[in-house]
Design a protein around this nucleic acid. Structure first.
Lengths: 206, 206, 206, 206
DNA sequence: TATGAATGAGGATTCATTCAT
DNA sequence: AATGAATGAATCCTCATTCAT
């Protein structure tokens, strides 16, 4: 019996989080309503509140879950691996994640644009730490002459922005490309860009 | 006398648009309230409505004004100029614009993330047209061997995403960089990236 | 100069009253707005207030003017005339008035339906007095055997209701008759009705 | 349990409709406020909205309910019955209805005076149809010499106007009659009027 | 666990009226 | 005599949350 309830609980919590993600990612926190989320989740509003005591908590639960996954790819960069392949691999994982989880990407974008009221601490804490470490790795690669000189922070920002662009600005991308055009591979573009960026002969930029 | 009234009108309309920009860019359309905007503009709510009949109209006026300015840089690309310098110049103008008008950038980002309910038509119309034309120009440059092979759409998207990132994700950028660090030039990074991207010796990417 | 102003004054006051009549007669007092009236009158709202200090005063001015005209027909009944012709003449004047001044009729109807907050006193005073007098006249005609027995109050009410019906319920009348049908004379019907009512041989109703 | 909830629902919906009827019938749609209705119904304003999503819907629900009842009496006219008794019976049913449901009558009057924005279609549709049919019946009775010549449309209008007058212009009727007078029977007057109207010897009107 | 009922605190907008010129 | 500017008081409606069951 407890088991059954737990199963229902999990099912409903998952449904609420899925619904919350869909709604929050499109309208932002303040622009979303519990009615929308409840309808999307197929639950009554009071029942929704039974699982998450407030609108705020649904949002926070989503962001908590998101943050873990969101930083995962960067942890996998191997300082002992081949620099170019490591960075291309990172970009590839980021892009795949954005393509597979566009709503999560938009939720994140909304949160940041609105000033990161919920995850500001995490950004200034864990995220800053891991980026700093990765920047050191890149700086070391540059110092060792294994990749072209590059500011590691800007490099990381550009990987973030390009990969997320396809999710966050999906509507604009589709508007510009037109509905019928076969969509050329962003993966290839990104890989190509990084390869040239990191391996271009110094003479080319002189 | 008429002049005085016009002056008040212009002053208040400008104040409302400035306030609306500030609020809408942070909270999105639905997440923003007239109370916030009125307070920010230093006007009473009914007086605000006296100048703009509805919340919607303030938002639309802002987007109309924005769209014009937003597309301006791409029009200045000269098909007869030096390809690399033209594209770098474009990226530089875009970045400068994002840096000078970060709120506008965020307003735009919010609108797109939420599905572009207001400017969808403009995206599918004028924006698509000018991007298509620019893509042709880039393709011609590639065909003439003046720049490295590159998908023009992805190139444009990457310029957009990187330049806007510094405005839209400002909070995250600052969180990661830390408050004290001297901010390395994004302008230089971007120029360097494009130069390598467009002029890398074919052998480098093979 | 004073003359000129007076001319403008009269013109504008007349325009306001005409506009107020049109608007109040359709939407009632509370359902009408100064904006509607000002627009209809071709004046600015503050200028309208310059002539009539409040919405209330426009309404009252209209009702005052109306009441006089509205009671006029009944005063013309001549107790020394031919009973049937006097009553038919009265009905005819009432019908003509409703046909020529349908908006006034609807204004009056609205005021009464809403409980006659403005003209209640006049109804209980002057109107009651003149109806009482007319009822006496009719009673005297009945007593003298000059018309069939009839309750004078109900007779008067039926004349009022029928004549006003064509103005107040104009929309319904037109809906029922259809747009194309030639409208048969209400005047003839009413005259015929009264003639039969007042002169029917007793045997007919037995 | 479900029953209890349904009971509350029905009770509150009924209370809202009763309150809406009272308020709308006096002030018209635009002149009425949800505050008034909520207070009259003994509910909070949001709770009122819980049952009827908008002011408009309360009004429409009232008119829908009303229209059915309002047309009922005319359907009961039997073309095979005695013409005079059928028409008198109809008038009697109409008068009884107005006396028992004066607020409904005023609601209807308000709607018509304001141009029948909600029920215009019903008037031009179902009402027009049934009146046309009734007019044919009356014409047939006249052609058969069973009642005096009379325009059936005007006859019907006069029955409507007289019977409704006692409800719609109740305030005026009471003002004119005075509070103390015993109210003479409108029923008798109306019956008498119709009997003379329909059976008057031709000579009487010649 | 679930939901119908209820509400206080907004939130967009309207409107009669006032103010300044 | 006229009008642009301004506003307090509604007015309709929304919404997160609570209550009762």
């Amino acid at each position: 019996m407890t088991k059954t309830e737990t199963r229902i609980q999990k099912k409903n919590q998952a449904a609420i989080l899925a619904a919350g993600l869909k709604v929050f990612s499109q309208y932002g926190f303040r622009g979303s309503t519990l009615d929308q989320i409840a309808k999307e989740a197929g639950l009554s509003k009071p029942n929704l509140i039974y699982y998450f005591a407030s609108k705020d908590l649904i949002y926070k639960a989503l962001l908590d879950r998101l943050l873990e996954n969101w930083m995962e790819p960067i942890y996998q960069i191997d300082a002992t691996g081949d620099p170019v392949e490591e960075l291309i691999g990172y970009a590839r994982r980021k892009l795949t994640m954005s393509q597979n989880y566009p709503a999560e990407s938009r939720l994140f974008a909304n949160e940041i644009i609105q000033g990161a009221p919920q995850i500001g601490d995490a950004l200034r804490g864990e995220l800053r730490r891991v980026v700093k470490k990765t920047a050191s790795t890149i700086d070391a690669w540059v110092a060792a002459g294994r990749i072209q000189p590059v500011n590691p922070y800007h490099l990381i920002f550009s990987i973030w922005s390009i990969t997320q662009h396809y999710a966050d600005f999906d509507v604009q991308v589709k508007a510009v490309m037109g509905p019928e055009d076969p969509f050329p591979s962003a993966q290839d573009y990104l890989e190509n860009m990084l390869r040239r960026m990191l391996t271009a002969s110094p003479g080319a930029s002189g």
